[in-house]
Design a protein around this nucleic acid. Structure first.
Lengths: 193, 193, 193, 193
DNA sequence: TATGAATGAGCGTTCATTCAT
DNA sequence: AATGAATGAACGCTCATTCAT
C-alpha cells in the first residue's frame, strides 16, 4: 500500500536523522539505521538505491520543507527589507529549534563525497535563488543599491548565515541563535544600501 | 641530514596535496601518496604518525603560511579599511593562484572526522582572530560603527569569504575570484559603517 | 535455521583445526581458514568476534568435550587408583587418536598472546581440578599417602602427561602414546603411596 | 677487538632479556632491544643473522650456563638419589632467583615459531640427558627399579618440574619455589623405587 | 514486501631486514 | 664496525550491497 510505503520511507529517514545525530556520519552504518527504524537491513534497499540516497533524501525532505516555508513566509512581506529579515529569522530559528537537523546538515553531512555534496547543493540552490529574488526585488524597489552584484551578494549572505549556524553548533550552543538575527540583518541591509 | 629530512617531509606533503586534489579525500590511499612522492609506504610513517597527520600538517604548513602572510601584509595598512581590503584580497587571490590547495581545503578536507576538523579549526582560529583585530581597530579609529558586535561580525565576514571560494570552485572556476574582491569589500565596509 | 547456523560454526572450527595443523599458527590467516571452510572471509565474523575467538572456541569445544568425557569415565571408577588410570588412559589415547587436535593444542596454540593463554588456562582448569578430586578421594580412601601435597601433586601429574604428549609429537610420533599409559600410571601410583 | 665484540654481543643479549621480560615476546621489537642495548638497529645484525637468533642465543647462553652448573653439581653426588635432589634443587632455585630468565623462558619464548621451538629443544636436550644419566646410574646402583622405562621417566620428571615453575609464575609467585623441592623429590623417588 | 545471512573488496599500519654512508 | 633511514610485504576487519527464501 502506498500509505504503508510512505510510512516505512519516513520511518527510515527519521531513524537516519537520529542515528547520524547520535553517532556521527562515520558511525552510522546501514545496520544501525535499520535497527533504529525497526526494519531489516535489506528492507532499506527497497526504498533507497544506495546508502547515499538516504542522506540525499534526508536533505531534500527536511530542508526542502524549510524552503517551502521560506517561500510561504516571504510572500506576505511588504518590502525586500522585510523579506530578508524574514528569511534570516526563519533560517536561524528553524535550525535552533531543530538541533538534530542542524547538527546533521551543518556538520555531519558535510563529511561526504562529491556526489552527495552536489546533491546537497541542488537542495540548497532554490534557497539561494530565493535570496536572489529578494535582492532583485530590493533593487527594483530602489531600496537596495543599483550597482549590487546579485550573484555575488547572495553568496555573501548565504555564507554568513551558514557560518553563524555552524559556529553556534561548534561552540556548544551557549547562546541564542535567534538573538543574532537583528544584528545580522542590520549588517546585511547596510551592505545592501 | 636535516635538509634531506625536510625534503622528504615536504615531498610527502606536496604529493598528498596533488593526490587528494586529483582523487578526492576518499580516493587517496597511503599507497597512492607514497607512490606519487616516490617513497615506500612505510617511509611515510617515519614522518607522520597517522594518515590523518599528513592532512593536519598540510593544513598547518600551507594555510599557516597564509596566516603569516596575512599578518605581514596587514602590518603596513594605514587604516582598518585598508587592512580588511588586504585580507580579502589575499584570501581570494592566494586560493585562486593555488587551485589544488583551494580544492583540498575547501572541499576535500571537510570530509573528515572530528579529530581532523578540530585541528583544522585550530589553524583557522588565528585567521578569524586577525579579522577580529581589524574590526576592533576600525571601531577604535571610529571608522567602523561603535555598536558593532565583533564576535558575530567576524563570522559573517569569514563565512562570506569561505562561501565565495567554495562556490567558485564548485561552479568550475568560470570567473575570476580576485575580480570579486572589490564588490565583496564594499559590501563589508558598508555593513561596518 | 539453528541447525544451519551450527553447521557453519562447526564448519569454521573444523577448517581452523585443519589449517592450523597444516600451516602452523602464524601461517593460518583468516582468508585461508575461510577458504578451507568454503565461506567468505566476512562470514567468519558473523560467528566469531575476532580471529582469536576461533582459537578459544576451538579449545573450548574440542578440549571441553574431553573434560566431559573424563568426568563421565571417572564416575564409574571404584577406586582412586582406577580413576587415575582412566584419566591417563583417556588423556593419551584421545590425543593419539586425534593428531590434529593434539598438534594444535600442544604446539601451535601455545604460540599465542596473553589473552588466548588465559582462555586456554580456563579450559584446562577443570581438568586439573578433576585430578585434584581424584587425589583427595585417594587420600580419604587411605589409598594415597596422607601427607600428600595435593596442590603440588596435581601439577606434577598434569605436567608429566603434558610433556609426554608434546615429546611424542615432536619426536614424530614414532611410538604408541597409549603404550606409555601403564608405566606412567605406575610411576604416579608409586609416588602417591 | 674480540673483547669488544663479546661486550656488544653480551650487551644485546642482556638487553633482549630485559626487554622481553618487560614487554612480552610480541612487544619486543628489534628497535626496542637496540635502544635498550644502546646500539643502532643495524648493529644487531652484525652479531645476529636474524631476530630469532637472539632468542636462540639467549636460551643457549643463559640456560646453557645452567646445564653446566647441573653437571658440576651432580659430579659430587654420592648417589643417584642425591643427584636427583640436587638437580631439582638447582632447577627450581636458579629460576626462583632469576625471575626475568624464568619468565622469558617459561612464558614468553614459548610463543615462538617451530624453528625456535626446535632450537630451544636442542638446548634442553642435554638437560634431559643429564636426568637420563642419573636414572641409569640409579638403576645400576640398584637404588631405582630395574624395570624403569628411562626414556619415559625422564620426560615425566622434566615435565613435572617444568609445570611447577610455570604454574608458580602464572600464580604470581605467591609462594616459595624452593619450598616445593622436598615434596617433589619425594614424589619422584617413590615413583622410581 | 520483507528478511537477514552471506558476501568480498578494500586499506592503514607494523616491523624485520637492508645498505649507502 | 657502526649507523639509522628506508623499505615493502603482509593481514585482520568492516560494512554496503545482494539474493534466496
Amino acid at each position: 500500500m502506498a500509505s504503508r510505503k510512505m510510512d516505512k520511507y519516513e520511518l527510515i529517514l527519521e531513524a537516519a536523522l537520529k542515528v547520524i545525530a547520535e553517532n556521527g556520519f562515520h558511525g552510522s552504518q546501514i545496520s544501525k539505521i535499520a535497527k533504529e527504524a525497526g526494519v531489516a537491513d535489506g528492507t532499506i534497499y527497497l526504498y533507497f538505491k544506495k546508502k547515499e540516497d538516504i542522506l540525499i533524501s534526508l536533505f531534500q525532505e527536511r530542508l526542502g520543507g524549510l524552503i517551502a516555508l521560506f517561500h510561504e513566509s516571504v510572500k506576505d512581506s511588504a518590502s525586500a527589507d522585510e523579506a530578508l529579515r524574514t528569511v534570516c529569522n526563519i533560517h536561524l530559528s528553524e535550525l535552533e529549534n531543530n538541533v538534530n537537523l542542524a547538527y546533521v546538515t551543518q556538520i555531519e553531512l558535510r563529511q561526504s563525497n562529491l556526489e552527495l555534496r552536489v546533491a546537497i547543493g541542488n537542495v540548497v540552490k532554490p534557497y539561494i535563488q530565493l535570496i536572489e529574488h529578494i535582492l532583485e526585488k530590493g533593487v527594483q524597489e530602489q531600496s537596495f543599491r543599483a550597482d549590487l552584484d546579485i550573484k555575488l551578494t547572495r553568496l555573501l549572505i548565504f555564507g554568513s548565515l551558514d557560518e553563524v549556524v555552524t559556529s553556534w553548533l561548534i561552540s556548544g550552543r551557549k547562546y541564542s541563535l535567534i538573538g543574532q538575527v537583528d544584528k545580522t540583518v542590520e549588517f546585511f541591509l547596510r551592505g545592501l544600501k
